[in-house]
Amino acid sequence: MIKVVPKVLVMSGYGINCETETAHAFQKAGAETDIVHINDLIAGKKKMADYEIIMFPGGFSYGDDTGSGNAFANKIKNNLFDDLTEFINSGKLILGICNGFQVMTNLGLFALPSTDYGERISALESNTNNRYECRWVHIKENDSVCVFTKGINVTHVPIAHGEGRFYCDEKTYHELKENKQIVFSYCDSEGNPANGEYPLNPNGAYQDIAGICDKTGRIFGLMPHPERSLYSISEPEYQLKKEIAKRNGDIIPEFIENNLQIFKNAVEYFNK
């Protein structure tokens, strides 16, 4: 069988800043990537329809002015929403990390069975301490319908955000849960729930929620950064692990497989 190499549109511009390492992650997973400035899409120089995956990377689009992700989401709504809807309807994949998740939240892409695309169901609010924070956390996959997270249980990833506190009302929460749309939750290294405790839950997220997907599982957003934690050497405990491995005659794998798997799953999706 010939392997399909999906093409990833990695969005850039206006303060998005993780496009390079996110493209790198998709490349390591076997995808082809194209970093595309949003204005080139608006001008029609590039087309969403030419890609299999749309990636909204992390960053600080519009400096978080008027609320994180809001201004960039407006720009898409005002200029590209029809293209995006067509993209969604054609069964393709969308991933958003950190600021990308914030943009997608404001675009209302996480449709429930009871809602339409374009309708906001949740918010990413200022962290409880109202301050930007960068640290590593553990997250656990909740046996969700998300296509990006097949085979992943607990993994270790950095967060870096000021507005990452997931919020939705109780009714929405139950529907998300019912429909297996809660993808990742903050937990301890063993996978036990963070129960809202700082720093395991780094931002005060409701029900420890770190990432959700839409009703189909094809549209996925999360606050933590798997693209910044592809390599074992990036882990804070790398030096300790290296020492232990050395004494045991082991070799530390190059990649943190769980995190690379998110991107690999996206590639695999087109090879089923």
Partner: peptide, 17 residues
């Protein structure tokens, strides 16, 4: 911890050890 040291995925020996 309020300064992003993970962006660009380039950190090896971090500010906190």
């Amino acid at each position: 911890k309020q300064y992003d040291h993970e962006v660009q995925n380039n950190s090896v020996i971090k500010p906190l050890q």
